[in-house]
Amino acid sequence: MIAQQIINAVSLGGVYALLALGLAIVFSIVGLINFAHGELMTLSGYALLAALVFGLPFPAAVLVAVSCGALAAVAMERVAFRPMRGASVTSLLLTSFAVSSLLKVVFQNGISARPQAVAMPSWMTGAFSFGDFTIGVGPSISIVVSALALIALELFLRRTVTGTAMRAAAEDFNVVRLMGIPASRIIATAFLLSGLLAGLAAMLWVAQRASVDPLMGFTPVLKAFIAAVVGGLGSLPGAVAGGFLLGIIEVLLQATLPAAVAPYRDAIVLSGVIAVLLVRPQGLIPAVRVQRS
């Protein structure tokens, strides 16, 4: 029972970590909290559905869907945020809200207000058992995929020049440019990565929910935002820590709160977040930052 709930917490926390990372990467480079991040997920979800409807095999459909998320993120930067480069944080934030609302309306009117069922392959239901301990296929997939994604991202950021440049840009964007590294490449990569993470998170999200709907992105982006703030805005390790912490708290409360106080669960989670921020205003693992573009 306790082991089960730990697995649940890790599984949920992993998805939150991917989401929070997606927000944090962009924030660390351009100082923008991209509230349209959730709509990137929605878009990936619809892309998965479309690919499956077109008869693509499941792995290929997932590949298409994740790529769509990544490309959409880059396109979003090009169309919506690049013209705003150098604008104030508030205008960037409002732009991201506008993009988010616009996409929701487009999904609602262009596709349907109704959730669309995404039939997951049947191997995604069922469970592995070790003795009298069982672990569901669903949570296992979430844990494995999040772990692989976190490792791949870490390797990218540590081992490649572009990754190193991104970490540097999070500290001091202008000096990275003084090294001859183009600003647009760094920013595009940040959006590409955030789109990839959104796409991956969307796959896990949809795999757990079996449907996509126009408003699907709202809850995850909110959770990601909370996780990123708790972890320390703009700090990548912070985002991961915040994501796992949020997952653990939510599962813990869901598992233990008596039904009578269950409606207050979200309020309790948020109070916990505020408490963390009172003790550590910069978050769990604050970002190192000199200045941004």
């Binding site: 020049v161 190193t164 440049a165 540097a168 500290e171 001091d172 090294m179 590294i181 190192v288 000199v290």
Partner: peptide, 16 residues
């Protein structure tokens, strides 16, 4: 870059 190693700082200098 305070968060990067000396090696990474140097590498970025020459990367492009």
């Amino acid at each position: 870059f305070a968060g990067l190693t000396v090696a990474d700082n140097l590498r970025l200098g020459g990367a492009m």
